[in-house]
Structure formats: C-alpha cells, structure tokens
Simulated assay, not measured.
Amino acid sequence: MQAISAIDVPSAPVAHTGRSWARAAQDIRQGIGHRELWGHLGWQDIKQRYRRSVIGPLWITLSMAITAAGLGLLYSQLFEASIGTFLPYLTVGFIVWNFILGCLTEGSDTFIANEGLIKHLPAPLTVYALRTVWRQTLMLMHNLLVYVVVLAIFFNDLSTPGYEITEHGTPQPGLSWAALLAIPAFCLIALNGAWVTLLFGIISTRYRDIPQVVGALTQLLFFMTPIVWSTDILTKRFGEGAADWKILVAELNPLYHFIQILRAPLIGNTQSWHHWVVVGGITVIGWSLAFLAMRNYRARVSYWV
C-alpha cells in the first residue's frame, strides 16, 4: 500500500451499489481515467515478480527466446519446414498466445487476487482489470525483443515474395508496409483482453471453479490453435480434403483469428479480412456481456471476494 500512496486515488469511495447501466458505464469510464493508478500497479507487479533477480524482467525475454528457439528447431524438423520462415511464425505465435493466455488465466483471478485493495482502496473495479491487461502488455513488450532479433536474422527469408512457411505450402507476400497493421491489431486484442478480464473476473469471484476450468481449457486450445503448426500442414498430410479439417480445427477456433491478425502483418503473411470480421464480432459480443455483468453484479464483487 505504500507504493500506492504516491498515486492519485479518488477522495471518496466509488459507488458499487445498485444495478444501473449508468453506474456500470461510470465505473468503466473512471477506471480508464485512472491511468496512473493501474499503470503503476501493473508495473509494480512486474518488478515484484522479479525482485532480487540478477537480470530482472529480462527473464521474460530470455524465457520466450529459449522456448521459441527450442520448439522452432524441433518442429521445423518434424514438419520439414525451413527454419528461416517457420521460426518467426512460431515465435510471433507464442508471443501473441502468451498475451491471450495471461488475459484468460490471470484475468479470471483478477478480483480474487486484488481482494485487499478492493475492500480498502476506493477505486473503480475496472482499474483492476486494466492492471492485468497492462501487466500482460508489458510482458508482451519484453517478448517483442525476441521478435526483433528473429526478424533481424531471418529478414531476407521473410521479405522474399512468395516464401512458404512449410514446404509446398501457401505462398506468402512477404514483409511490407502492411506490417503497420500490427498496431491496430494489438489494440483490438488488448480491447478484448479487457472485457475477458472483467467478465471472467466477475464470474470467478462467485464461482471459484472457473479459473481451474479456464486453465484446463487453455491447455487444450493451445494444441488446437495453429501456433506450433500451420494450416498448410493439414493439406500436406491429408490432401485437399483437409480443407474440412481446417474449418473444424482452425477456422472455428476464435483464438486462431486473434493470433492471425497480429502475426500475419509481423511476418509478411497474407492478410485476410475475415479474421478481422470474426475478431470484431467477438469484441462487440464480449463487451456486451461484460457490460451486462458489470451492471448486474458489480456491486456484489466486494462481498464475493
């Protein structure tokens, strides 16, 4: 609490009572307005996690580098893929996946983990959700250092028009100025991370089994999402009829679309508008559910935790 004393907080408790759309909107609006508070808390989470460590938060980067290098070398051999195109594909996939995974798993525990602050700090509930998303954003920024190194090493491979992720796979256009689409893509993913944290966080305060359910499902979703494998592999292994498998395994997996809108521009893959449509639709539906949860159960969170 000492670290928070230097940050401006509301002088009076924020009203958490009553069911009202206006109060739910006010909570979200005020939460966004307290940027210094949730920004400070998120950064303190990173510092606290690696306190007394020799290299500190750089362990985030080092862990990602080791994972990407090890699995990239392994799976590129298993799938007979060129390391120069497959390793960047896998690296960016892991970076985006870690952000999504953090929002899902840590988001479910957001209000439970902030029990003490919720009961004693007069701040909007949205502050704690944004704290989690900001913490995941800081970790993603550390992991992007791995992407920069991989990009520098394999830039020629990724910038060659018509390159393939796997042998005899779909030709890709290569890196171009379309890489700037990664900026709105990440903003859209972070926006979804906020509603996921709010919605799952509220539900988890009432039903404590939810974090365990989310943790178990994310393990399954990891293997079903094209991160360490690409959709080209389905066609190579099972023939043209694998298009049906692609629809079932990849296209119906919402996480695939989230990963692809950010991964595609960063490694020069084909940009497909339908990924953006799916993510946009999920954003609208997700925020509608989160807003409904805030309206109906926001006042009960402080009692449930």
Rank of each mutant, 00 (worst) to 15 (best):
Leu78Arg: 00
Gln77Val: 04
Gln136Asn: 10
Tyr128Ser: 10
Ile112Trp: 04
Val146Cys: 05
Pro124Tyr: 08
Ala113Lys: 03
Gln48Ser: 09
Leu117Gly: 07
Met64Arg: 01
His120Gln: 14
Ala25Gln: 06
Ala123Lys: 03
Glu80Arg: 00
Arg19Trp: 07
Leu140Gly: 14
Ala123Leu: 08
Tyr75Val: 11
Thr137Gln: 03
Met141Phe: 12
Leu41Cys: 04
Ser82Asp: 15
Leu151Trp: 13
Met141Asp: 02
Leu58Gln: 05
Ala68Glu: 06
Ala24Pro: 12
Arg49Asp: 08
Arg35Leu: 15
Leu121Trp: 10
Leu58Met: 12
Trp43Phe: 11
Val149Leu: 11
Phe111His: 01
Arg51Asn: 09
Met141Arg: 01
Thr110Lys: 00
Leu144Gln: 10
Gly39Ser: 03
Ile118Thr: 08
Asn98Val: 03
Trp38Cys: 03
Gly31Glu: 12
Trp134Leu: 07
Asn156Arg: 14
Ala22Val: 15
Ala25Ser: 08
Ser20Ile: 14
Val149Glu: 10
Ala69Pro: 04
Phe79Trp: 10
Ser20Ala: 07
Leu138Ala: 06
Pro124Val: 12
Ser108Met: 02
Leu138Asp: 06
Leu144Gly: 12
Phe154Cys: 12
His16Ser: 15
His16Asp: 15
Val150Pro: 13
Tyr75Ile: 09
Trp21Thr: 14
Val150Thr: 14
Tyr147Asp: 14
Gly31Asp: 14
Lys47Asp: 09
Leu41Tyr: 02
Phe154Ser: 11
Leu138Thr: 06
Phe99Cys: 04
Gly102Pro: 07
Phe154Glu: 14
Tyr75Leu: 12
Val96Ser: 03
Pro88Ser: 09
Ile95Cys: 01
Leu104Thr: 02
Gly39Asn: 03
Arg19Pro: 06
Gly84Lys: 02
Gly102Ala: 01
Thr137Glu: 07
Arg131Ser: 05
Leu73Thr: 07
Glu36Tyr: 07
Phe79Arg: 01
Glu106Asn: 04
Phe154Lys: 05
Leu37Asp: 09
Asp45Ile: 08
Ile118Arg: 00
Phe99Leu: 13
Leu71Met: 03
Gln44Ala: 03
Arg51Thr: 12
Trp97Lys: 00
